[in-house]
Design a protein around this nucleic acid. Structure first.
Lengths: 242, 242
DNA sequence: CGCAAGATTGAAGTACGTCAATTCCAGTGG
DNA sequence: CCACTGGAATTGACGTACTTCAATCTTGCG
């Protein structure tokens, strides 16, 4: 049930059978959330931590002018907001994009897990630090790269993150996003997203078949987008020397 | 010595005299860092947590194309990277912009502080969650707002953050940044930063005298930049209804 | 089969970047 | 007190990556 999370955490630390069991127990309360439904809404004061088991969700903010800013994608194995309860209320929302299975972990349970001795708490910390590093890299991406490299960079990241939770098939993976959602993520119009994707396809960097995206040549895509995966702090894979 | 930090934390929780003393003791090892010098450099594996006592520093990444992306500003009272030691190595650098006094707090000491019972640990957590919320808001800002609103939004934030640590004088504060640094922050050319600032001045929103920036009418600047300070999770001040 | 939502296209506008010159200003040395 | 310097701010002219609008075409799905 919590396989993706475990797989992700084990990149960083070896978990004991007990650790695994603790996670299984914590994630018993599973709800299915339909596409376009919120998991948490701005101004909420949530009492649970949410773990995505299946499907894609997005962290987003609405801007007074009507724009939607997507701030992060949450895929299987991702925990949302381990410690938000410390803050008075949410300053953003989290919504399901596709149909999601989400485990609701009671705040108190989560606190216990984090306080346990051993590797589990450390590993979860590590994953939240990586989430923050991703946010920083997105900031670099939005403010400093052109549309084509920006999109390519994003694709590199989602490929590696999908791979880390066992959701890839060679170098292809499900990218269940509309071009409008991509635009809200990258700060681009849908028209420009469309043309830019065509461009990447024309360059032979990617291929898409429905919602499945195929990276034809990972090295070339990395090269093209100046992709340095160090911020994901994954072990083993994908070193990049510069 | 650690007054700004204490002042900031007390927005969130009442600290005991003992809490205050613990902070004082932890921040004994103070170093002066000159402008343009790094406090931590990418790929370092730091053993200390750094607390800015005086001056401005910036979190930044260099991009292969030679650009510098500024990801955050660190002002007095800001702690850098409470828990980076969990990750193998830094994925970005932190550099002093002006001359900075920085307290080097040994990792172990910091761990003890976070484990103590009572309000101090909670308050420090709160401040790191706010740092992350700031990062998200910056992402919104870069990807979804025009240059003039983007700059205005940034100025609103720095005004409130400066105010929270007692560095404002009415609605004016020191902004020791060059236009090039502003550009590296906002993803704009220096030329465009220059023209945009002139524009804000011409609209009567701000005035600058050397490195001191005066906000002429906070409400108007908030209005202009769609500024909603909820993400700073400050108590009391500056509610915004929409 | 039929309908929406999404993807694609074309044409025209604009907010920004680039390049290169000039002016301003704080600090330094005489 | 002034002249000199180098970094920062400012300006003008021009180029371009993106946006906007509005139409059409495609696709998944009841």
């Amino acid at each position: 049930m919590v396989k993706p999370l475990i797989q992700k955490l084990e990149q960083f630390a070896k978990l004991s059978d007990e650790d695994r069991q603790v996670l299984e127990d914590a994630a018993r309360d599973v709800k299915v959330i339909g596409p376009r439904q919120d998991i948490i809404t701005e101004d909420d004061e949530p009492n649970d931590v949410h773990l995505i088991l299946d499907g894609w969700a997005a962290r987003y903010k609405m801007i007074p002018n009507g724009d939607r800013a997507i701030l992060a994608y949450l895929i299987p194995g991702d925990l949302c907001d381990i410690h938000v309860t410390l803050l008075n209320q949410m300053d953003h929302s989290i919504g399901a994009l596709s149909t999601c299975r989400v485990a609701f972990i009671p705040r108190q349970k989560m606190d216990e897990i984090m306080r346990r001795d051993g590797q589990l708490g450390r590993a979860i910390w590590w994953s939240t630090l990586v989430d923050e590093a991703i946010l920083r890299e997105w900031l670099v991406n939005m403010a400093h790269r052109s549309a084509d490299k920006r999109l390519a960079h994003f694709i590199c990241e989602m490929l590696l993150r999908s791979k880390a939770v066992g959701l890839t098939d060679d170098d292809s993976f499900e990218l269940p996003l509309t071009q409008e959602e991509l635009g809200d993520t990258m700060g681009l119009s849908t028209v420009h997203v469309n043309r830019t994707l065509q461009d990447l396809r024309a360059q032979g960097l990617i291929t898409s078949r429905g919602k499945r995206l195929i990276v034809n040549d990972v090295d070339r895509l990395f090269e093209f987008s100046d992709y340095n995966p160090n911020y994901l702090h994954q072990v083993g894979g994908h070193k990049r020397d510069r």
